[in-house]
Amino acid sequence: MIGDFIDGPLWYFSAAVFLLGVIWRLIAILRIGVTVDLSVARSSGAGGALRTLFSRSLPRRPVLTRGKLQFVAGYMFHLGLFALLFLAQPHVEFISRRITGFGWTTLPHWGFMLVSEAAFAGLLLLLLYRLMHPVTRLISRAGDYAASLLVFLVMLSGCLALARAYEPLRLLHLLLAELLLIYFPFSTLMHAFTFAVSRGYTGAGMARKGVNA
């Protein structure tokens, strides 16, 4: 009964909320527009935007020396989560069955183990850093904790359901994932999409000024 609801209507509802919400948020951001820059551009903004999109993924030396752990943990978590989301066998099966109709290569056993360990370690360390460091604690709001906690719970429930033999465990994982999808567009989790906008904007602005940022 409740299982059918989670598996059926709620899944479609949450997917719709996620999709429409993300599009709505992105359009809203893009509609803000850019203030007209009357100065003569020193170079094209597009190239700078593209470069910054990737170059900002690399830590800079002074930042790196200040906090190695955040970078290591951050990379572990984000790469691990991305690999888990799109390359774990159950996920590919799910995506293939529900969304795309086709699947792709999945991670081997050892690869799955590696990325899930990395993702869990990274998330736990980052969450603790947020709690322990005075600055991050000061700037963190309830929404940040909610997002971290929700992602952690989704990952944990997924890990508990790994035997793939118990319907309640799968439904719990699915329910939490659906809650995450619904919460996603209205929270800081949107950074998964907006990072590109913000980096592109910064990069383009800097490139027009002739700054290699």
């Binding site: 360990e117 869990f120 736990l124 890990c159 508990l160 359901a161 790994l162 035997a163 118990y166 465990l169």
Partner: peptide, 18 residues
């Protein structure tokens, strides 16, 4: 309990190396 034990086992296995 089987459900609980299975969840425990999978969780234990995954968090162990951590």
């Amino acid at each position: 309990f089987s459900l609980l034990a299975s969840a425990s086992k999978e969780g234990h296995n995954l968090f162990g190396p951590l």
